[in-house]
Nucleic acid binder design. Structure first.
Lengths: 160, 160
DNA sequence: TTTAGTTATTTCAAACATAAAATATCTAAG
DNA sequence: CTTAGATATTTTATGTTTGAAATAACTAAA
């Protein structure tokens, strides 16, 4: 075996292991942060993480979003969004409106109460994230975020 | 306002935004990868991701694990593990044994069929992860993994 | 216009997940 | 020995999530 073949083999192996390890670390990191945020949202605001996520998505779009847009943006199934919106609607935080000429679609948006409610939570959420990621310097955070950008663009369109 | 105060303020702001952005990217990345692996596991092996995760954990411990160890390692609740193990047991992939002198605990381990079954899936899983993370070079992957190590150590013990 | 195919959403069944309460067992202080 | 507290697991109620099937509405070709 030549030196370059040896190098190639070595790289392949390192490669394999390092990527799997990276994936496991990535998964553990997000589970840890997600779990902590979930608990704080629950104890502080009596809200679940999925509901917070929905409200965060809707807050960014004052004009509202289609169910399918929400589903794609949050990367969860359509049926899942239906249930979440149903429950948020029951609580008066969200409302469905029929605005298009398209009667299949319903535009979902935060109610006034929903916006007010979210703004409070968002402030805490913001601080918590900064606390939980305080290990990273601003520069590190920026670099890391840039590195992870690929996924957003590469896979955005994947239908579920 | 002095120059240093200005700088401080600027840094604080950058800081805030970059960390939140990092968290959102991290979350999107793991959701994207997780979703893809979930689908491939389902279509190829007719297994759910949570069950795969349990089997992966047990595979690393031929002597078996306690329910509480599993729960902590996978970062999910106790009750959740009970259900997963129940279903895996029904399928003959996992078994509970009473080995200790402690009758509260049950040691869970893969059956022979479970091990054989997992080994097949693990091979594909390994390849898939390498494919899905192929955007990262081995060096990048290694560095990134090292960077994310903090979470494993910082939060490992957090009870849920 | 009719209708075949597409798109948007909901419904459904099963599984997954959480948090709190219940159960069972162990441990150790008195 | 008794019992108060700790530990390990399961049970329960509620909510989340998926994937497939059903429903409803739109679009465009014949």
């Amino acid at each position: 075996m030549t030196a370059s073949q040896e190098l190639l083999k070595t790289n392949k192996t390192t490669d394999d292991k390092s990527r799997v390890r990276l994936w496991l670390r990535l998964l553990r990191a997000s589970r840890a942060i997600e779990g902590e945020l979930r608990e704080r949202l629950r104890t502080t605001y009596n809200v679940t993480l999925p509901r917070f996520d929905v409200m965060a998505a809707l807050y960014r779009e004052p004009e509202g979003m289609l169910m399918s847009q929400l589903s794609k943006y949050l990367m969860v199934s359509n049926g899942n969004v239906t249930g979440l919106i149903d429950r948020l609607t029951t609580n008066g935080l969200v409302q469905r409106t029929l605005r298009d000429g398209d009667r299949r679609t319903s535009v979902v948006l935060l109610t006034k109460e929903g916006r007010k409610n979210f703004e409070q939570m968002a402030k805490s959420h913001h601080e918590w994230v900064n606390e939980l990621l305080s290990h990273f310097s601003p520069d590190e955070a920026q670099n890391l975020a840039e590195t992870l950008k690929v996924f957003a663009s590469d896979w955005e369109g994947h239908p579920r």
